[in-house]
């Protein structure tokens, strides 16, 4: 059990390190290239935080409580590992794509002022994320909270706060064969001086209990916005006037809509669930929840 706990803590810290150490790569880029390079990251963060909101549409009519941990594995499609730079300086042609944050090698482009080099990516096909969440419910309405006290990782401070409100719809329809609920999710996540993330989602989901097994699914519309802040280092020496300039820019993730299908096992006070969401980036979510 101790080993499992240690693994969870390591997973948690590593998943946040991913986002805390992208600044080295961003420092190569001006605003015109930031979207192409970092949008898959914005999408991943949004995809992660907009996941794990439910594993059952049933909400106790009197009182309920749950606390658990959710783990996500976001799958990065190949077409989000490269992008073709736009608005290169005069005389330069983007004759090949370069890596996004999840791609491999950064490309170099030859032109009248020397080489224009792009940063390499993380060369990853999946990204993990783990966070805790708790909820209380009363009279067919559930309030979910995701919160972490400020954590220091690699000299950066990481903050997480989120909440969700869920309401049972099926409670108003007597003898309805499945449980149906609607839910609104809002999450914020920040790494002190680099990224500031806001995610929102609205979903309608349904579930059906079959003994200890609950099958569930839902449709969700969602959005994510990431504010990046970093210092441009001008590694190519092509923009000396902008060297050490602070860049501040908002990028919207490409996550707009998803479809989720999953199952949960109810083992006395524990629920183990797993689901898959099909969206701009697929995400496999698992959860371990203590609830009553």
């Amino acid at each position: 059990m101790k080993k499992t706990l240690l693994l969870l803590i390591l997973t948690f810290l590593f998943s946040f390190r991913t986002y805390a150490q992208v600044e080295n790569r961003l420092s190569f880029l001006l605003e015109n290239d930031l979207t192409g390079f970092a949008q898959p990251l914005a999408t991943s963060i949004g995809t992660a935080f907009n996941s794990g909101g439910y594993h059952d549409a049933y909400i106790p009519k009197l009182f309920g409580f749950s606390i658990g941990i959710k783990g996500m594995l976001i799958l990065i499609p190949d077409d989000q590992k490269t992008f073709t730079p736009k608005n290169l300086p005069s005389g330069y042609t983007a004759d090949k794509p370069t890596a996004t944050i999840y791609g491999d090698k950064g490309s170099v482009y030859s032109g009248p002022l020397g080489y224009l080099a792009y940063p390499s990516g993380l060369n990853q096909s999946s990204v993990p994320m783990v966070f805790p969440q708790a909820s209380i419910s009363f009279m067919g309405t559930e309030l979910m909270v995701r919160y972490l006290p400020t954590i220091k990782v690699d000299q950066e401070e990481i903050d997480l706060f989120g909440f969700g409100i869920k309401h049972s719809i099926s409670q108003y329809i007597p003898l309805f064969p499945v449980n149906i609920a609607v839910q609104f999710l809002y999450n914020t996540f920040s790494i002190s001086n680099i990224v500031d993330v806001k995610n929102t989602a609205f979903n309608v989901h349904a579930s059906k209990s079959l003994g200890v097994l609950t099958v569930y699914g839902g449709l969700q519309i969602e959005s994510s916005t990431v504010d990046f802040k970093y210092t441009f280092k001008d590694p190519n020496g092509l923009d000396p006037s902008k060297k050490n300039q602070e860049i501040s820019m908002s990028i919207d993730g490409n996550n707009k809509f998803r479809m989720t299908v999953g199952g949960a096992l109810n083992l006395a006070f524990f629920v183990i669930n797993a689901d898959y969401s099909l969206g701009n980036q697929g995400v496999l979510t698992t959860g371990l929840t203590f609830q009553f």
């Binding site: 998943s15 060369n123 990204v127 993990p128």
Partner: peptide, 25 residues
């Protein structure tokens, strides 16, 4: 096992973050 896979993926990412190939023009 699932959590272990997530953990190992995290280690993979940690390595990717630790080892950064930088283009020097």
């Amino acid at each position: 096992l699932g959590l272990l896979v997530v953990s190992l993926t995290s280690c993979d990412i940690a390595d990717a973050l630790k080892n950064y190939p930088v283009n020097i023009p």
